[in-house]
């Protein structure tokens, strides 16, 4: 019996998310009285794999097979299911991101397991196995019981603190024995965004809406973003108008983010917009309309003209950094 956690690496390195999800798995395993096995697919150096032990992984299954680089959903699911079987895993955990969402549903079918995605914290109880998640796009929470013997869950990023529980970690090579015929995804072209803070990784996000009036007015927001090491976001009309790239659109029909701080300039706070940002720890709104619904969802606010506030904020942040 064990808890299996699927880890991703970025060019051979783990990120905060990897440690967060291993910490989360370790906490569940502790409640169940079982060990934690981490699965790593790709070329990750032993030292880096060992670092998972700091967060509670008792064992790391290391799959080194270049064929998985195409992220073929079917082959990956097969590999994870084989690892789960060889470890007699009772709970299999993925991150609730592109890769996790792609593979977890397939794995759940393979393992005859029930699936709950986007789990926002430790299980309410492990026997019966009840987890909590957001439903209705952030407008409510649900407590859901998984009734099968094996459970598959995906974990919502930024909903568990990284905790260190140093453990001895054994690294084992693992060959899931997937035949060539299972790999059917052929990558023709890859485009990576470089030199920018990824929106889904960002701890601070600076976001602009239609109140910014036009693409020529983003200079101040970008400067503020750079000073804060923030990711940039926008409301849907802003990306629809082509003022900003579609990559930056957040909301129900865009990216769903959960940074520590979300700064909204000239955004009214429509329900569909809030659906993408309401998991942020703190929301700050700058809007000239005191009745704008964004203030109801915010922790701090300024009623005022964004064009006046932005330069002042830049100065204030510069001053803060100088005194740090």
């Amino acid at each position: 019996m064990s808890v299996l956690v699927y880890t991703e690496n970025w060019s051979g390195k783990f990120k905060k998310l990897s440690y967060e999800i291993v910490s989360f798995a370790a906490a569940i395993a502790k409640e169940m009285g079982s060990p934690v096995t981490a699965l790593s697919i790709g070329h990750v150096a032993d030292d880096e794999l060992k670092s998972l032990g700091k967060y509670g992984a008792n064992k790391v299954l290391n799959v080194q097979d270049d064929r998985f680089e195409s992220l073929d959903n079917k082959a990956l699911a097969d590999a994870v299911a084989k690892a789960a079987e060889s470890e007699s895993a009772k709970v299999v955990i993925f991150a609730h991101n592109n890769e996790g969402k792609a593979i977890a549903p397939r794995v759940s079918v393979k393992l005859n397991a029930g699936l709950v995605t986007g789990v926002t914290g430790l299980p309410v109880s492990v026997d019966p196995f009840v987890v909590r998640k957001k439903v209705f796009t952030g407008k409510a929470f649900a407590n859901i019981q998984i009734k099968t013997d094996v459970k598959v869950i995906t974990f919502a990023q930024n909903s568990y603190e990284v905790v260190e529980t140093p453990t001895d970690t054994a690294i084992e090579a693992f060959d899931p024995q997937i035949s060539d015929g299972e790999f059917n995804t052929v990558v023709k072209d890859t485009h990576l965004i470089t030199g920018k803070v990824l929106l889904t990784d960002a701890e601070i996000v600076v976001s602009g809406g239609r109140g910014m009036k036009g693409p020529e007015n983003w200079g101040g927001l970008e400067e503020l973003g750079e000073l804060l090491g923030a990711g940039m976001a926008c409301s849907r009309p802003v990306s629809d108008e082509g003022w900003r790239s579609h990559e930056e659109h957040v909301g129900q029909t865009g990216k769903i983010i959960a940074p520590n701080l979300y700064l909204a300039f000239g955004i009214s706070g429509a329900i569909q917009h809030l659906g993408g940002v309401n998991s942020s720890k703190y929301i700050v709104a700058i809007n000239k309309d005191p009745e704008a619904p964004i203030f109801e969802a915010s922790d701090y606010g300024i009623v005022g003209d964004a064009f006046k506030v932005i330069p002042q904020l830049i100065e204030a942040v510069k001053e803060m950094k100088a005194n740090k």
């Binding site: 029930g114 929470f141 859901i144 019981q145 300024i302 506030v309």
Partner: peptide
Amino acid sequence: ARTEFLTYELPAPKAACKMVDED
């Protein structure tokens, strides 16, 4: 079904937004 939705909750109402002057 392999899962069962037991109960729902609405999020706790947010504390009032703290307002700061424009300047």
